[in-house]
Structure formats: C-alpha cells, structure tokens
Design a protein around this nucleic acid. Structure first.
Length: 112
DNA sequence: AACTTGACGTGAC
DNA sequence: AGTCACGCCAAGT
C-alpha cells in the first residue's frame, strides 16, 4: 500500500457534502505515517476522478487558490453543488461540514 | 534507474 | 505573530 493509495482511500470515503482538512485526512490514514503536507502533495496529483475538492486547509481555505484560481473556482463550484456552505471570506464552513468517519449513517446530520 | 526539484499543512515553540 | 520541525511524495531530467 503506497501512501498515495492510503490517502486516496480516505479521501474517496468522504461522502458528498462533507469535507476534511489535510491534517484530518493525514490523521485518518492508518498503517502509514503521513503529514498534512504529504496529503497536500498527493492531493496535488489527484486524478479528476477523485473527490479532491472535499479536502482543504483546516481553516477552510481552498489552498489550491494560491496556485490555480481556476481550479479553486472549480472546487468551489463542486462543493456548492454538494450543498457545502461558505463563509463571507470564501472559506468552507468546516464547523458545519467536517466529516466524522466511523460513523455512521448520520454523517449527514451534523450539518443541521 | 538514480538524482534533483517542486510542492495544496499544521501544531508547537 | 513569525519561525521551525515533522510523518516526504511525485514528476521531470
């Protein structure tokens, strides 16, 4: 199991409408020791098929915007399409949409 | 196939 | 608030 696979295994399990931070993904990856930076690195090489848009900075900021405003816009559109709310500063409401794995069938109820 | 370079974080100090 | 260390992978040459 490569780190890349382990990371995408976690990312791939994020349900629509839910999001995770790099650090959170890194923490969920088990069996392999990874840093949030590593997650970010790998996410940078994510396939279009992967739900890469559900991963962002812990602050809710779309980090990709630093490098590609165009992709950031795409990410934002995808998130909005899933019902993810943003605050007035263009950041994702992590407090409302952070995914709590293990869970559950109720992983969608925390959004209120 | 080996080496170099680039690159989407986060918490502690 | 800025700096530092940590769990460094992937792509190009």
């Amino acid at each position: 199991m490569n780190v890349r696979d382990a990371v995408f295994a976690v990312v791939g399990r994020i349900p629509p409408g839910k999001v995770l931070s790099y650090g959170h993904v890194a923490d969920l990856v088990d069996g392999v020791r990874v840093t949030p930076l590593t997650v970010g690195r790998i996410m940078a090489t994510a396939d279009a098929d992967a739900p890469w848009h559900r991963v962002m900075a812990r602050d809710g900021e779309l980090v990709i915007a630093r490098r590609s405003p165009r992709l950031a816009e795409l990410q934002k559109i995808r998130l909005l399409s899933e019902g993810v709310a943003f605050d007035g500063e263009g950041r994702v409401r992590m407090d409302l949409h952070t995914w709590h794995p293990g869970g559950t069938l109720f992983d969608d109820m925390e959004g209120d």
